[in-house]
């Protein structure tokens, strides 16, 4: 009871703090300086129609690299904690899932993967990008796991894909250091015609690699959690 009262007091304090912050916030109706720079110069400098993509991949690209690293570390920790745990009940019994799920997944999984690829390849033109596409690909992998619990061959592919895309991502970032203005500069490739698929320099390539890496990492996290024993 004392604990609940303490928690309640803390919540009340936090609420007051939020209210004070809310009262002191600036009520500007215009963009601030940084945002204005990104919106005015982003499409011209990077060739990306989606300003959020140009911020994520180019201007604040280093943050994205760090973020992908955190995701990799998290996937490694989970793999380490839950390793060598096989759910005996599910293993080696392919007939256990329903026929409907199995047949449906054969048709749906390629389409889901295709949607994911579409989302991250068009990241510089429309809403979407590597993170969204990667999450969609991981959802497709979950359906694959559900349809065939004994599946295990996919793990090698996942790990190869993850290492390959991660190394290529860093390689492209370093290439920007030598061929263009700096680390993660997207102008190592021609900017192309604004608003077409093959434009914005290296942004579609980098975002596709991020998409593959995020998809592979989320898939391996889900695989480890699925395989944990009771």
């Amino acid at each position: 009871m004392v604990k609940k009262a303490f928690a309640f007091t803390l919540i009340l304090g936090m609420g007051l703090l939020f209210y004070q912050l809310y009262r002191q916030r600036s009520t500007s109706t215009d963009l601030n300086k940084t945002a204005r720079y990104y919106v005015e110069n982003g499409p011209k400098e990077t060739g990306s129609a989606n300003v959020v993509t140009s911020v994520v991949v180019t201007y604040r690209g280093l943050d994205t690299l760090g973020e992908v690293t955190i995701l990799f570390v998290a996937a490694s920790i989970i793999g380490f904690f839950l390793k060598n745990q096989r759910n005996r009940k599910l293993e080696g019994a392919p007939g256990e899932t329903s026929e409907l799920l199995h047949t449906g997944s054969v048709f749906l999984v390629p389409l889901i993967f295709l949607l994911g690829v579409y989302v991250f390849v068009n990241g510089h033109l429309s809403p979407g990008g590597g993170f969204q596409g990667g999450a969609i690909i991981a959802s497709g992998t979950v359906l694959l796991f559900l349809a065939d619990p004994s599946i295990g061959a996919g793990r090698g592919v996942i790990h190869v894909l993850e290492s390959f895309s991660g190394m290529l991502y860093v390689g492209l970032a370093v290439a920007g250091l030598f061929l263009a203005g700096g680390f993660l500069d997207n102008r190592i490739m021609p900017l192309g015609h604004f608003g077409t698929l093959l434009s914005a320099g290296a942004i579609p390539v980098i975002y596709s690699l991020i998409g593959l890496k995020v998809g592979a990492e989320l898939s391996s996290i889900l695989y480890a959690l699925k395989d944990a024993k009771e």
């Binding site: 963009l31 919106v39 005015e40 499409p43 993170f131």
Partner: peptide, 23 residues
């Protein structure tokens, strides 16, 4: 664009924050 769009920076931050949150 500069007079008609919302601030893109918080959106970019939240985009990465959601993925970190999942991890």
């Amino acid at each position: 664009a500069a007079s008609r769009v919302v601030d893109p920076v918080p959106q970019a931050i939240v985009l990465t924050a959601i993925v970190i949150g999942l991890a």
